[in-house]
Amino acid sequence: MKFTGRVWVFGDDVDTDQIIPARYLTTSDPEALARHCMEDADPSFPEKVREGDIIVAGRNFGSGSSSEHAPIAIKAAGVACVVAESFARIFFRNAFNMALPIFVCEGLYKKLKDGDIIHVDGDKGEITIEGGGERFTVAPIPPFMQGLIQDGGLMAYVKKRFVSPKVNVG
C-alpha cells in the first residue's frame, strides 16, 4: 500500500462529531456525508479537499461515536489514507472494516503544515516528507487487517469466507 498526497493537518482528539457532526447522521449516503466531512474541525475542509489528499492528525483520532459515518465520510471525500499518532478504538476497527487505510505514526504531524506532500509506504513501513530527508516509521498492520483491506472491507471478507454458494444464500 503506497500513497502520495497533499496533507491536511489536525490536532489531538479529533472526535467523530467533528469528523461528521451528529446532526447529519439522519442519512447514510456517502456523498451527502462527504459534503460535511471534518466540518466542525475546519468548516472549509469539504470545499478544499481533493481526491488523494491525506489527513494527518495527533493522538486519539476518531474518538467518540461508533458510527461508521466517520470513515465513510472521509473515504467519500476522496481522502486516500489517514495518518495519526493514535486512533480511537472503534474508529480503528471501522476504518479497516470500511477498507480505509490508516497508519499509526509518531512525531509526524508536528512536522507538517497544510499542503505539504508526503509519501506513505505501508509495505516498507515508512513515511517521508517531500523535499525533506527525514523518515518516519509506521507501525505494521497485522496480517488479518491487511486481508480486510485487500478484500475491500469486512463485507467482502465475509462474503468470500462465510457465505458459501450452498448455504443460506438467496
Binding site: 461508521e68 472503534i90 472494516n97 469486512l154 465475509v158
Partner: peptide, 9 residues
C-alpha cells in the same frame, strides 16, 4: 461497541 459493518457481519 463496534461499527455497522461489524453488526452486519
Amino acid at each position: 461497541g463496534v461499527g455497522s459493518t461489524d453488526l452486519a457481519a
